[in-house]
Amino acid sequence: MMFWRRFRVVVLGRRVLTPSPMRLRLTALFLTLLVSAAHAAPVPQQVDIPLSSGVLHAQLYKPEGEGPFPAVIALHGCGGLSGHSDSVLPRYRDWAERLLRAGNAVLLPDSYGSRELGPQCRVKEMHVKARRERVTDIAASRAWLMKQSWVARDRVSLIGWANGASALLWAVRPQSAARDLSPDFRAAVAFYPDCRISAGLGWSTRVPTLVLIGADDDVSSPPACRQMVDGARGRSALARIVVYPGAYHDFDRANTPLHAAAGGTDVTAPEHGHLGTDAQARAESQKDVAEWLAR
């Protein structure tokens, strides 16, 4: 097919070529593809972090340039970090990309996949416990970040969801402080953790910690989280709780209609309670997280 058609015009007595409509359409399509590629979603890099026994696999989102950048260690819930075709599930990728756009490096350790385990939401005897193995993973992730030249070592924070948030609560307790001379975590954000054990143990934190939970969360316990945070005031670093009216578990997860977990076959979901997006709470939590990490 001829993409150019010839015709005569009198321009200083010379013949010129004019692009055909087909050529123009192809050019427009090519430019559209170039723009789309330029705005493609960032692809994380897998990194391997040494543990005392084995290796912790993690996914890293890193801004362009040499830094130093603030960094966030992001902790997945009981459903795990990855899926069949995703190295990072959409719910965590959404937050990672949001934090990345704000200039943060984001490290997502895979506590289950690294130990060749699947989702642990409906496992009665969990082999990876929030207060034990997952706290070890947090410490290893922090130690790895402290060795990277592109990390602002005094601006490393934590964020976690559900089981990952429960691990975060254990990791920020004064008893869990690292014994090295590196700066401590800058801040921590816990989305709908299970606060019942921590509240009963007289939890406190050495790191400014924000707890975010829906008022109608029937998977975790908003009253226990209130009790935990209220009990910590006056004897620990700054602790704050935000309870979003009418919101359920997973309120910050995009495009998830409210539904009951009980009776479902989804092994990445809890056995009981309700899950689903709350648009207002989602938007407010995004603002709350950004302000807390920018402190």
Results as ranks from 00 to 15, higher is better:
Arg235Val: 02
Trp292Ser: 02
Arg23Asp: 00
Pro19Lys: 06
Ile138Trp: 02
His84Thr: 14
Arg179Ser: 12
Leu24Lys: 14
Val135Pro: 01
Leu107Gly: 07
Gly113Met: 09
Pro70Trp: 13
Arg93Leu: 03
Leu24Ser: 12
Val128Glu: 05
Ala224Ile: 11
Ala105Gly: 11
Gln280Tyr: 00
Gly118Asp: 10
Leu60Gln: 05
Gly231Asn: 13
Thr18Phe: 15
Gln148Gly: 10
Arg14Gly: 00
Ala247Tyr: 06
Ser285Asn: 07
His127Pro: 09
Ala171His: 00
Arg253Glu: 12
Thr277Ile: 04
Arg93Cys: 06
Gly13Pro: 13
Glu284Met: 01
Phe69Ser: 01
His76Gly: 05
Leu158Gln: 07
Asp252Phe: 02
Lys124Tyr: 04
Ser111His: 13
Leu117Val: 08
Val243Lys: 06
Asp266Gln: 13
Val242Thr: 13
Val172Glu: 00
Ser87Ala: 08
Glu125His: 14
Ile138Gln: 01
Gln286Ser: 04
His127Phe: 10
Arg186His: 15
Ser82Leu: 04
Ser20Phe: 09
Ala28Met: 14
Leu145Thr: 02
Asp180Ile: 11
Thr265Met: 10
Ala215Ile: 09
Glu291His: 09
Asp288His: 01
Gly103His: 05
Thr277Leu: 03
Leu56His: 11
Leu181Glu: 15
Arg235Gln: 10
Phe191Ser: 00
Ser111Glu: 09
Ile241Thr: 00
Ala58Ile: 06
Ala199Gln: 13
Asp278Lys: 02
Ala239Arg: 01
Ser87Phe: 04
Gly13Cys: 09
Arg132Glu: 13
Ser52Met: 10
Leu181His: 11
Ser157Glu: 04
Pro109Thr: 13
Cys195Trp: 13
Gly79Pro: 07
Arg93Trp: 01
Ile197Trp: 05
Ala178Gln: 12
Ala239Glu: 06
Leu168Trp: 10
Gln120Val: 15
Pro193Asp: 03
Leu12Cys: 04
Trp203Asn: 06
Arg179Gln: 14
Arg233His: 11
Trp292Met: 03
Pro257Val: 05
Ser87Asp: 14
Tyr244Pro: 01
Thr32Leu: 15
Arg240Ser: 09
Asp288Gln: 01
Ser166Leu: 02
Glu133Ser: 09
Gly263Trp: 09
Val88Trp: 05
Trp292Cys: 00
Ala177Arg: 14
Thr18Ser: 14
Met2Cys: 10
Asp86Asn: 14
Ala41Thr: 15
Arg206Lys: 11
Ala269His: 03
Leu212Trp: 07
Arg226Leu: 12
Ser204Asn: 14
Met1Glu: 15
His76Cys: 06
Pro19Phe: 08
Asp252Leu: 00
Trp4His: 12
His259Cys: 00
Gly65Pro: 06
Trp292Arg: 02
Ile138Arg: 02
Ala281Met: 04
Pro245Lys: 03
Leu51Gly: 09
Ala190Pro: 00
Phe191Val: 03
Trp95Arg: 13
Pro174Phe: 02
Asn163Leu: 13
Thr205Ser: 15
Pro174Met: 03
Asn104Pro: 02
Val47Gln: 03
Ala37Arg: 07
Val11Phe: 10
Arg23Leu: 15
Leu75Met: 11
Tyr244Leu: 04
Ser157Gly: 05
Leu89Thr: 06
Asn255Cys: 07
His57Lys: 14
Asp180His: 12
Trp95Ala: 12
Ala239Val: 01
Met228Ile: 05
Leu258Trp: 07
Pro257Ser: 09
Glu97Ser: 02
Val35Asp: 07
